[in-house]
Design a protein around this nucleic acid. Structure first.
Lengths: 111, 111
DNA sequence: TTTATAGTTTTAGAATTATGGAACTAAATG
DNA sequence: CATTTAGTTCCATAATTCTAAAACTATAAA
């Protein structure tokens, strides 16, 4: 990842409605949520939501899949991972996890 | 950390000059760097740099300390930590380090 | 106490981003 | 085929953010 990609990723998250979308999709995981449902749940008009979803998609933070006439959006895990790596690249000898509070028990991974 | 703080933190990083400042200050660690030096090294006019430094400071990503007539800026580690925690809150059972590539050897911490 | 240096604030214009109605496309249903 | 439903694109306006010259504040040095 290079600077401009990171700026675009950060910018895509730096807006209330979009950050809410992102966090909602983090929660729904692989299930994801369709555009209309996001629009309803976050009380954002459809064209506005569509605009925001496009921003997040272009920035590589979420991805879209059409099924019939609904389009389901899911979080794109590599997106946030790459961003976090970039932000902490030269911190803690390049191992940002050393900066974060880590509990040692039960290290099962959700990937 | 709540949504608006995160939006402000993300917004403060979502700009090329500011992201460069942030990364430069990550590298310089506790030493930090003064406003004029940042202005010179990144080739940004002083008033513009001052504006960007204020944004980053207000967002809690860096902090300022005056010594004589120079003001030295340093990274504020809690800022980026809190942001990363917020972004991955409900991912990986709230333990984002499980999503990141972790090497197990030598876990000395830089805090 | 003048002068130089480091940095900020003010300010006004430029550029970018956000909003949502209206019109559109695509798929499903009668 | 006509209609409904899901979603997007277009477009004009509004709002926010960025830029840097000019003027200002604070400290240090002559």
């Amino acid at each position: 990842m290079e600077l401009n990609d990171a700026v675009s990723a950060l910018g895509s998250l730096a807006q209330p409605a979009r950050l809410k979308v992102f966090r909602l999709l983090v929660k729904t995981g692989v299930e994801g949520m369709c555009a209309g449902e996001l629009s309803r749940q976050l009380d954002v008009p459809k064209p506005t939501m569509s605009f925001h979803l496009k921003e997040l998609t272009n920035a590589g933070m979420i991805s879209a899949e059409r099924d019939g006439r609904t389009i389901t959006y899911t979080i794109r895990k590599e997106g946030i991972q790459q961003l976090m790596t970039f932000l902490t690249e030269d911190c803690c000898q390049g191992r940002p996890e050393l900066c974060l509070p880590v509990s040692d028990d039960e290290k099962q991974c959700c990937n």
